[in-house]
Amino acid sequence: MKHRTTAGLAAVALASIALTGCASGDDTAGGTASDANVCEVAPAAEASPAPSPSAADLETVEAIEVSGPVGKAPKVTFKTPLEVSSPASRIVAEGTGDELTEGAQATIDYVVLGGKDGKQTYSTWETKKPESFTLGDPQYDLLNDRLIGQKVGARIAMASTAMDQTVQVTVVEVSGVKQIPTRAEGTEVEPEAGLPAVELAENGQPTVTIPQDYEAPTDLVIQPLIEGDGAKVTRDQTVTVQYAGCLLDGTSFDSSWSRGTPTSFPLNGVISGWTEGIAGQKVGSQVLLVVPADKGYGDQENGAIPANSTLVFVVDILEAKAA
């Protein structure tokens, strides 16, 4: 699922989301290779190692001065223009709280400054909107490398090249960490007959079987498969989910399972089929969504998704909190 990302976190999200394809496969519930399209999620690939900073890059980051108490916006100063050839970072202060482990959800505050002039471009301390991500998510390799094994309260300083090719300095502070489930847990729900069938692997990863004679619906289909016991999700929340997305021909176009970790995003920042389909569901639930084009990407091609495509999603709702 493509979603909007703030300028700050986009600057440190170094890995791109891989799109994978699959076609008809072996027999599974709901049909066979001859009469159904089987969408299997590609297994998580090993993350590519982040580029190694040079000795000069490390010296540049060491020269970034960060001061001020933990929990407050830091004062950040450095000699301009600041340049690095590869992303570089250092631990400014070690935390004293709970340990940061892979798979846990870290909440961070951060400030971003332009390397050219040292001017601040974004600060969550000013917006009062800290952000969260899953430790181990390959989109945040630079943060993972520095934060996993540290503790809440840790501060890191980073210099990296943003998407617009300008150098940015980012100071990140971890304000909290929380363990969340990796899959939906609750009461199984018997789906309506005729819908795409979902089969779960031992770890919860779904395989979707779509009958070849399945007619694309004109209205959004919302079919709970597992009902959790958490609070109901609202449209204005940020959700953390595991999900797999398929086309009706069995092509897998996106999956958090293939990236190895859940993902978080504001529910009001995605396609309307997701906003309408997830709002009102309980945390801990798994839901099948069949999204007609007018509630997806419409007549616009979007990456591996052709124009006017009906989209099939299996979504595990792991957490929901204020955006």
Rank of each mutant, 00 (worst) to 15 (best):
M1Y: 07
T5A: 15
A7T: 10
G8R: 06
L9Y: 02
A10S: 15
L14H: 06
L19F: 11
C22S: 15
S24F: 00
D27M: 14
S34N: 08
D35P: 02
V38C: 10
C39M: 05
E40M: 12
P43C: 02
A45W: 02
P49Y: 03
S54C: 11
S54D: 09
A56L: 07
D57H: 11
L58K: 14
E65T: 15
E65Q: 15
V66R: 12
V66C: 04
S67H: 07
G71V: 08
G71R: 13
A73S: 12
K75C: 00
K75N: 06
L82N: 01
S86L: 10
S86K: 14
P87G: 10
A88H: 04
S89K: 14
I91K: 15
A93V: 14
E94N: 13
G97I: 03
D98F: 01
E99S: 11
L100I: 10
T101M: 09
E102Q: 11
E102A: 10
T107I: 07
D109S: 12
V111C: 12
V112P: 03
G114E: 14
K116P: 00
G118I: 00
T124L: 00
K129E: 15
P130C: 02
F133N: 02
F133E: 03
D137I: 13
P138G: 09
Q139W: 01
D141A: 11
L142R: 12
L143R: 03
N144R: 09
I148Q: 03
Q150M: 04
I156C: 06
A157D: 01
M158R: 00
A162P: 01
M163R: 15
V167S: 03
V167N: 11
V167L: 01
V169S: 08
V172D: 03
E173I: 15
V177T: 15
K178D: 01
Q179G: 06
R183H: 03
R183S: 12
G194I: 07
P196L: 08
P196G: 08
G204P: 02
T209A: 09
T209E: 13
I210K: 09
I210L: 05
D213F: 06
E215C: 01
A216Y: 08
T218Y: 12
T218F: 06
Q223G: 05
K232V: 07
V233G: 10
T234G: 08
R235M: 14
D236Q: 12
D236I: 05
T238K: 10
V241P: 06
G245D: 11
D249I: 09
T251H: 01
D254L: 14
S256L: 07
S256V: 00
W257T: 02
G260S: 04
G260T: 02
T261R: 14
P266L: 08
L267E: 03
I271P: 01
G273S: 05
G273W: 01
T275S: 03
T275V: 05
E276S: 08
G277F: 07
A279C: 01
V287T: 00
L288V: 06
V290R: 08
V291I: 10
V291Q: 02
P292Y: 05
K295L: 13
K295D: 14
Y297I: 02
A304C: 05
I305W: 08
V314N: 08
V314G: 01
V314Q: 03
V315S: 01
V315M: 06
L318D: 04
E319L: 03
A322D: 14
